[in-house]
Amino acid sequence: MMAMPDAMYGGHSGVTSSDKPLEYRDPNQSVKILGFWLFLATDMLLFGCLFATYLVVRTHTDGGPTARSIFDIPGFTLETFFLLTSSFTGGLSTLAMRNGNKKALVSWLAVTIALGLAFIGLEVHEFIGDVAAGATWERSAFLSAFFTLVGTHGSHVTVGLVWMFLTLLQVAKRGITPITARKVFVVNLYWHFLDVVWVFIFTVVYLSGRVM
């Protein structure tokens, strides 16, 4: 029998290799990244079910507001601009983390949070406008599904903002360690995922709603 790794998370080798990116070097941390990918799979299915529901009741407006009448092109275009840009700056924060540049990392996280806040602000503004115009989620199945799908994405973004802020604080306090590196990496995975979901919302909900 060979000498064995003593760590709980020894895995196959228990060897920490330095040619991997920082967030993957410690097996205690890299297993969490795998776990997070699995979580994203479940979250993707969550959104998949909401999309399916939306598509089924998309035209069930019950004589109330329709997609064409409530979707505001400049509004959702600007939302898209902010969120997609924030995904890019989030990517830059990961890059800064890999380069060991703490100052740049903190700055890019802050920019990402600011863009995310702008997105949420616009979305809340859009929802308030809809409700004021009588397009509430009690009005029709279409509106129930619209607010639930887009609102679920929005609440995910809100959670992501709080989470990213907490991560920023930890990086500021503790610097770039295998643990904080993993945290930066994972929160950015989440952020990119929400971006991908938004691309579908943009296409399936807003664009199709205006065109079809």
Partner: peptide, 8 residues
């Protein structure tokens, strides 16, 4: 009104 009979 996801699964109600009313309102679509």
């Amino acid at each position: 009104h996801f699964f109600t009979i009313l309102h679509g």
